[in-house]
Design a protein around this nucleic acid. Structure first.
Lengths: 218, 218
DNA sequence: TAGATTGTTAATCGATTAACAATC
DNA sequence: TAGATTGTTAATCGATTAACAATC
């Protein structure tokens, strides 16, 4: 459960809010102005009861017998997700993945802005992989985070340095981290870490493939 | 719950097995041969009771009073995850992200092999972004999947074409998909889709940041 | 009014945690 | 044997689902 202002929202619900927002924007772009929990749930890949329950944690935004106004529900979720103000990101580790993340174009439409790129490799520091920003040296981490008023860090370093870098990030006051390094970061409880592990996802698929094969064999 | 052979493993447990495997390999690489549920759990970022419970679904592999043999537990999990045989991947969509995924070096150590790269852009088809493989045209999807005996697909296309491409992939017999496109794929129930949504992860972090700010303000 | 759809309640289900007997 | 640590049971907790009264 996560408290925000007066309300408390289950973590599982928070994790689904981005899906709803994405589906709403998609509906809006197709000219749909009103939707139902059934339609929106299908577009989000969840059940309609789940959707209504999730929205009920944020308040009551629909009209019985009618449905939801796409535009206003969209802005309710945008506000709940804290996307009203822009979040400034630093990407640390400008390898293959870091470069791809730096080049990703969807940030601004989602309320984010890449404010800094950092790495340690002499071959990368000083270059402009995404056209705009220059990669700065990790030595200047604290200075850069403060200068650019960074509030979130994307950690795309290899595994071994990740823990030490994360500790410096936290010491500099940034408490929201998206981690691509394949390690379990040990950080204070008030720091929020979301981890993306591509290799792990593939392994989970492999488990399902093995389960499929084992079941088919019987 | 997921059945595999005689056993049934909760989905939440399956999702943690990669963490345990990663931690075990890390311990092994540091020369540790025996570990305890406490040590392994800490390295994996979970509680020790959770770890023991999770392992209990697979069987009983420790020695009371002693702990677990790192090497043998590692191979138990490797087998459970179906990593005994190599899984052949096709990456579809060779943009920024697809290139980064193609260049990622950790596949072989984790039991995967990139067998094909596909795209539609004339500027990309025919090039060799990862040094080895040539990007083939999506028109030849079915042929390529069969020729290379692909068993899993990594979908790194933009959102709009993702659904149609996924349907072709499934029709060609591939039922394990890792999707990076920001859409909720509508596919038959026996197809397993894992989705990675970087934008969504950032939005979840933004929610936590907003919750932090709201709580601090009171 | 009749039909449709929300918001909420209550029941079910699954996951986590703590505690401890078994046992090395 | 004494100490340590597993594997499992039982209790708790959180999440999902179904059903329906409220109401537009």
């Amino acid at each position: 459960m996560i408290e925000i202002g007066e309300v408390t929202v289950p973590a599982a619900t928070v994790a689904r809010l981005p899906y709803y927002l994405r589906a709403l924007r998609d509906l809006a772009s197709r000219g749909v102005t009103t939707t139902s929990s059934t339609e929106l749930a299908e577009a989000s890949g969840v059940g309609s009861a789940q959707l209504r329950k999730d929205l009920s944690y944020l308040g009551s935004f629909g009209t019985r017998g009618v449905g939801y106004d796409v535009e206003s529900l969209s802005s309710v979720i945008t506000t709940a997700l804290g996307l009203g103000s822009t979040h400034r990101l630093a990407i640390i580790g400008i390898g293959n993945l870091g470069q791809a993340l730096a080049n990703y174009s969807g940030y601004s439409s989602r309320g984010f802005e890449v404010a800094a790129l950092l790495d340690v490799a002499p071959s990368v520091v000083g270059t402009r992989p995404a056209g705009g920003l220059v990669v700065e040296h990790l030595d200047a981490l604290e200075e850069v985070l403060e200068r650019e008023a960074v509030t979130m860090v994307v950690l795309a370093t290899p595994g071994p340095p990740a823990q030490a870098v994360a500790e410096r990030v936290v010491a500099a006051g940034v408490k929201e981290i998206l981690c691509f390094a394949p390690v379990a970061l040990q950080l204070p409880d008030d720091v929020v870490v979301r981890s993306v592990d591509v290799g792990g996802e593939l392994q989970i698929l492999a488990f399902h493939a093995a389960a499929r094969a084992a079941t088919a064999a019987r």
